[in-house]
Simulated assay, not measured.
Amino acid sequence: MKRWLRQRVDAAYEQLLTREISGAPTHVAVIQDGNRRYARRKGEDETAGHRAGARTTEQVLEWCQDIGVEELTLYAFSTENFERPPEEREALFDLLEEKLREFADADRVHENEVRIRALGAVDQLPERVRDAVDYAERRTRGYDEFVLNIALAYGGRSQLLEAARGVAADVEAGSIDPDEIDVETIERRLYDDPVRDVDLIIRTGGDERTSNFLPWHANGNEAAVFFCTPYWPEFSKTDFLRGIRTYESREESWRRTRARRALALLGAVGDAELPEARSIVTRFRDSLPTAERPDEDDLETIESGTAAAD
């Protein structure tokens, strides 16, 4: 297909997807895969691929703000990345330092009150990168309109392991009763500041795995996952909107399932559970197909039958 025709088709598809989207996830997490493969295909070195990917990152930040996403987490450097060749690793550190400082000084970041935070074992990074992290966090600490998390030296399992060790130490010291351990107890030890549950994970580059990324906040929330084939530097707004549509479809399916379960429970539970089941049906009733959607009289009939059976 000729380039000009492809551009017109892509623009039309983007407009169609934009019209179809009715809401946005609160927290999107992105695994930016394919920078090196993109560079090799172009006959360039890995550094060129990472720099091309950095430009895509800037665009995605804008797209998220345009549709109402409130938090974006980018998997920028994993613990496994320390095993890369020294020259590539150092080039990545240079790029991270440069972009962190550039983002921290960008007018659009301050105009939109974007808070920049680092997640992960930042103390394992070179001093120049740690200094850039500190600079970006200090420059944007007072903002709360949008949160941009940069996952650096990050490994989901290691984060959970450290949190578990912290809780175990507190139990041994007697400062926590084991019966008092709850979700908040773990979350307080994962990060200094709260991280929202992940609603959507996007992974580029063709691999269909989440690579140990935010397991507590994604798996626990049953996040939608969108895998796509473009390398990260090629990731387009159309791809992004397809990911958002995947999230919306996942949310609609979840609501429909909850409504069906609650509707079935109305005819089987006792008086103590009736208010909660009825509340769920009322909340998610519109997610059901019209033929399955109960009205108020139907709900009263179901509840009356339950009460009579008791």
Rank of each mutant, 00 (worst) to 15 (best):
A121R: 15
E162Y: 11
A169G: 05
L96C: 00
A118D: 02
L161F: 04
R130T: 06
A163G: 04
R128E: 08
A106K: 05
L152D: 03
D144K: 14
G166C: 06
I150E: 04
V122M: 03
V167W: 06
Y135V: 12
V122R: 13
F103S: 03
V109E: 03
D94C: 07
A164I: 11
A153D: 00
R115Q: 14
A121W: 09
A168H: 08
H110W: 08
V122T: 15
I116R: 14
V147G: 03
L161M: 10
E137F: 10
R165E: 02
E97Q: 14
G155A: 14
Q159T: 11
E102C: 04
L100W: 05
A132T: 06
R130P: 00
E111Q: 15
V129Q: 09
E98C: 04
A151N: 10
L160M: 12
E102Y: 08
V122H: 02
A104L: 02
R115K: 13
A168E: 00
D131C: 13
E98W: 11
L96R: 12
E111V: 13
A169I: 01
V129C: 01
R101P: 00
S158N: 04
H110F: 07
E111M: 08
I116H: 12
A118N: 10
L119D: 07
L95W: 10
V114M: 09
E162N: 10
E145I: 04
E162F: 05
D123T: 15
E102Q: 13
V133A: 00
Q159C: 01
R101Q: 05
L152H: 10
D170H: 14
E137Y: 10
A164V: 15
E111C: 01
L160S: 08
G156L: 05
D131L: 12
N149V: 05
R157W: 05
Q159Y: 00
A173W: 06
R130S: 02
R130G: 02
E113Y: 09
E145F: 06
L160R: 08
L95G: 12
A121T: 12
A153E: 00
D105Q: 12
A121I: 05
R138T: 13
Y154V: 04
L95P: 00
E97I: 09
A163N: 07
A173F: 07
R139L: 09
A132G: 11
V109I: 15
A164Q: 06
A136C: 01
N112S: 11
G166Q: 10
L96Y: 12
D107N: 10
L125A: 05
G120D: 03
L161Q: 08
L152N: 08
L148R: 11
A104N: 01
A106E: 01
G155T: 10
Y154S: 00
I150D: 00
R101N: 08
R138H: 14
R157V: 00
Q159R: 14
Q124G: 04
P126M: 02
D131W: 07
R138G: 06
G142S: 12
V167A: 06
E172V: 11
V171T: 07
K99L: 03
R130A: 02
L125Y: 08
V167G: 03
A121P: 07
L152I: 02
V114I: 14
R108C: 01
A106D: 03
Y135T: 13
A151T: 11
E162H: 14
L100K: 03
G155H: 06
R117V: 08
E97F: 00
A121G: 01
A121Q: 13
E137C: 11
A164L: 09
V129R: 12
E98V: 04
H110M: 09
L125M: 12
R141N: 08
N149Q: 06
